[in-house]
Nucleic acid binder design. Sequence first.
DNA 1: GCCAACGTTGGC
DNA 2: GCCAACGTTGGC
Length: 137
Amino acid sequence: MAYWLIKSEPNKWSWAMQVKAGAKGTFWNGVRNHTAKQNLMAMKKGEEAFFYHSNEGKEIVGIVKVIKTYYPDDSDPTGKFGMCDFAAVKPLKTPVTLEAIKADERLKSMMLVNNSRLSVQPVTDAEWKLICKLGGI
DNA sequence: GCCAACGTTGGC
DNA sequence: GCCAACGTTGGC
């Protein structure tokens, strides 16, 4: 069971909108990078991911799960990229900020810190557990 | 197939 | 709003 982290700009697609989409969830696209695409393709149904707000907030605000694995994005004219569907699982009681992640020795190797531009990232078991704890769940 | 130029992302 | 980091493009 792998864990992931997906990023979204709140003014484009926020956690609130994700929650509103409910249990049946909604597609998550916007990938325009092959590393991110590889990660998306590696996701399996039922796997969980952190939902991160970039630019505004810069914090992990909730957990989503994969409800539909990678499929082509019809709206992409190049046909190169696809998307997955996610549904909101639960919010973190306390959002975990980028600042807090950077400040924690154990989270310094996270891709979020070292490769902030990648929009879909793997998260290790240890990182997942720690961030859940920091988030109050 | 290399590499310079350009565009985009995202933290500050 | 600025700029550094990264990916992509296109000329050679």
